[in-house]
Each structure stands twice: as structure tokens, then as C-alpha cells.
């Protein structure tokens, strides 16, 4: 298959998937919940005004926790529903590679989260109006949050390809997302640092989304974090491809 054909296939799958979000209330419900919860967390729990600082730390710090619940809600149907409804047979008997289908579906969901992030831009305007924020840091925060969302999405999409039951895909997704998030939290690291060596503790911390996203929130675009999230995405897209391939046997 030529590169052009692959691109056409990826984009066809992606557009079909995106259109299906907007054909159901899913898209609107997701966007509203994302905007409301991210706003509520920022202003009430994050103390956006009380901090008295013109940055978006109060906004971004909640993103991992939002994604833990919202990303599995978006990704649970990605493959499980196709397997249950039998449409996977339609998809895989079209002349498109399995890899193209995996990437197309992933990109659709990722772009959709990107749209949700774009809709939060008024909060950037708010800090810009109230103070003089470091726009580089905020931009890095957005890019980092988007990359992190891709990581959660690739992980949860993979889990969705392992089952034909959306509820199982959701519960497994939330659990896995939680584990990959908190493996960098002090409570987990303290638990390990007591008996495991510093190398092990360091490795666990390195695997954590919190660790990498924390780096992003503190400063400019962290190259290391970008590489981390990107490899994480590629790894799980590859795993998804294997999981989908498994359904053909």
C-alpha cells in the first residue's frame, strides 16, 4: 500500500469517527462536562484567584485527574463497540491496513480532546487580562496537557481493543490511567523508597504522568516529557494494533 493510500485511509477513518462523536450527544456532553469540571476545579479547588499569581497552574494541575475519568469515557467505545456491533468486520474488510485504522481512530479521539482544550482558551485570556503571565509557560502547559491526553488515550484505547464490553473498557481504563498517574505521587514513592532501591523508585517516578506533566507545568516545553509522552503513545498504538489483529484469529 502506498503512502498516499495509507493517508487516505487514516483520514477516512478519522473523519468517520469524529463525525460519529457529533452525531450523538457524546460530543456535547463530553465538552460540557470537561469545561464545567475543569472550571470548577480551577476556581474552587485550585484557588485560582487566591493564589494571586498570573499563571494557569491552578488550571493545569487538575488535568491528569480529569483525564483519568474523561478519557476512558471517550475511549471505551473506540474498539469495544466495533467488536460488539460487528462493524469491525466492515472496517477490516475494507482495503485499509489495521495500522491505519488504529491511527485514524486514535487521531479522531485525540483531536476531539484537542478541541476541548481549545474551548478552555478563555481562561488564558482571563489571566492575560488580569495580570502579565508567562505566555510561554502557558503554551507549554497546553501542549503538555494535550500530549498527556494522547498518552491516556492510547492506553485506554488499547484496553478497549481487548474487550467487546464498553463498561469493562471504561473501568479498566480508569484503573490503568489512575495507576500510570499516581506512580509519581509522593504517597506511592514513599511506599517504595522505604525498601526498594533508589533506582527502582526513580524508575517508577519516571513512568508517571504526574512527574512528566509536573515538569511541563513548571517551565518551558520539556523535551524529555515530549519524548516520553510520544513514545508512550506509539507503544500503546502498537499494542492496540496487536490487540485488534488478535480479533482476526
Amino acid at each position: 500500500m502506498s503512502a498516499g493510500n495509507t493517508l487516505t485511509a487514516v483520514s477516512a477513518v478519522m473523519r468517520r469517527e469524529l463525525a460519529s462523536y457529533f452525531a450523538t450527544p457524546l460530543a456535547v456532553v463530553f465538552l460540557i462536562v470537561f469545561l464545567l469540571t475543569s472550571g470548577a476545579f480551577t476556581f474552587y479547588l485550585g484557588g485560582f484567584f487566591d493564589r494571586g499569581q498570573s499563571d494557569l497552574y491552578a488550571f493545569f494541575q487538575w488535568h491528569p485527574w480529569l483525564y483519568i475519568v474523561l478519557v476512558p469515557a471517550l475511549s471505551m467505545r473506540l474498539w469495544a463497540e466495533e467488536a460488539r456491533a460487528g462493524t469491525i468486520e466492515l472496517l477490516l474488510t475494507l482495503p485499509i491496513g489495521i495500522g491505519a485504522a488504529v491511527v485514524g481512530k486514535f487521531l479522531a479521539a485525540w483531536l476531539f480532546i484537542g478541541l476541548a482544550l481549545v474551548l478552555t482558551l478563555p481562561i488564558w485570556a482571563t489571566v492575560a487580562y488580569l495580570g502579565d503571565p508567562d505566555h510561554g509557560t502557558i503554551l507549554a502547559g497546553y501542549i503538555g496537557s494535550f500530549a498527556m491526553a494522547g498518552g491516556y488515550l492510547a492506553l485506554c484505547g488499547f484496553l478497549s481493543a481487548l474487550t467487546r464490553n464498553q463498561v469493562i473498557a471504561f473501568v479498566a481504563g480508569v484503573s490503568a490511567a489512575f495507576v500510570i498517574t499516581v506512580s509519581g505521587a509522593p504517597v506511592v514513592l514513599n511506599f517504595f523508597s522505604g525498601w526498594a532501591g533508589s533506582a527502582v523508585t526513580g524508575f517508577i517516578a519516571q513512568m508517571s504522568f504526574l512527574t512528566h506533566f509536573g515538569e511541563v507545568m513548571r517551565g518551558a516545553i520539556e523535551f524529555r516529557a515530549a519524548i516520553y509522552f510520544l513514545s508512550f503513545i506509539l507503544l500503546f498504538l502498537f499494542a492496540t494494533r496487536i490487540a485488534v489483529e488478535r480479533q482476526r484469529s
Binding site: 463525525a19 460519529s20 452525531a23 456491533a85 462493524t87 466492515l90 474488510t93
Partner: peptide
């Protein structure tokens, strides 16, 4: 190949 799978599956929302 043109293929009509068993049960004619389709994406319901499309």
C-alpha cells in the same frame, strides 16, 4: 471484493 457480512452490521448513528 464487495462483502455483505452476516447480519449486515452498520454504524447506527451514520
Amino acid at each position: 471484493i464487495g462483502y455483505l457480512p452476516e447480519g449486515a452490521p452498520a454504524w447506527p448513528e451514520m
